[in-house]
Design a protein around this nucleic acid. Structure first.
Lengths: 183, 183
DNA sequence: TCGCGCATGTAATGTGTTACATGATTGT
DNA sequence: ACAATCATGTAACACATTACATGCGCGA
């Protein structure tokens, strides 16, 4: 049982999902390709942490809809009390920034401008996710969900994503302001 | 040549470092253990991107001090104009937050409090790094370095680290305020 | 004297990506 | 026609961690 395994159980604690759904939903928190997810799900199913139901769809391929077993729920609870690993960020851009004084001005500006766009788009994405969450949930109009609400965690993470993207956007703009166009 | 390889070259563009130094300095931007770094350095040396000089020390083990070759400098410049990969963040805490409504209140509070401490400590660390940078460099008292200054990148990254840690600190405090102690 | 920091390396194992494979439906 | 989305899987390879291995000097 590695972190990705617990992550999948964690998503399944909310609701049932297909492998494809899980793959898409875990991306923001733990990047993983379908080629890693599918074998893991098979293993978790074999070890009785999760079970699946075959669902036939019209107009779409059949899918396996996974849900937590009792053992899976127990595993999740135990995991929660284990020490939590520190976050690991890997960002090629930061390595490039390190030697930026040796690069062409326009290369640097382009890299920063691309990253700025990325963070602005991410921010928009998570802001609409927040709206969607507010629609699905039934918390008071003040906008503050109860800690016991199943969507509480998703709300916190969406806010976190928005905050991080705002900060990164601000940083990109600041750096660009220090790098005037040289034409 | 993978991202970590370029990262090592990137650090060596600033100044010469031992493998041990490189291992410590690359952590904030690209986590990697010494067991990954040493063989990579040997390979980069064999391929003529870097060279080393054996330095004997009193009271400390001998070390290999690496520096960039001409080929290494060329490689760095080419790399800078290549498209930059998106950042990848892996954070076990975010996965735990997702199913927080199913966990014990005190477990959740402890996890958040630990993370809060982590980000506060990181912020202090990077703030002293900023002071150290200002001491080493000779940019105007206004505090704004020139983009051509060799420490320009390090300055930008240190500011970035401080900003991110502040934002994360703020998020942790906010979440804790939503999770009153239940005793 | 016990652990930590400096300093380097290898071997075994675990994690993650890319490529290979298939196939229907929907929108451009 | 062509690409994208949904949907699942395997195989080969690349990347990363843990454990094994050594050894000196310094401070508690």
């Amino acid at each position: 049982m590695n972190t990705l395994s617990y992550g999948l159980l964690s998503l399944l604690a909310q609701s049932s999902f297909s492998g494809y759904d899980l793959m898409l939903r875990i991306q923001p928190f733990w990047p993983a390709k379908h080629s890693q997810i599918y074998p893991l799900l098979a293993k978790l199913e074999q070890d009785d942490y999760i079970r699946f139901e075959l669902v036939s769809q019209r107009d779409k391929p059949d899918k396996k809809v996974y849900s937590l077993t009792g053992k899976g729920q127990e595993a999740l609870k135990d995991w929660f009390d284990q020490p939590t690993a520190e976050p690991a960020l890997r960002d090629e851009m930061m390595l490039k920034v390190f030697c930026m004084s040796y690069a062409k001005r326009e290369s640097a500006r382009k890299m920063l401008a691309d990253r700025l766009t990325f963070h602005e788009e991410q921010r928009l994405k998570y802001e609409s996710k927040l709206v969607e969450l507010k629609g699905r949930a039934d918390w008071p109009e003040a906008g503050l969900p109860e800690p016991s609400h199943p969507l509480f965690g998703a709300y916190l993470l969406t806010r976190k994503a928005i905050m991080s993207n705002e900060t990164n956007t601000e940083w990109c703009r600041w750096v660009l302001s220090l790098l005037p166009e040289s034409d």
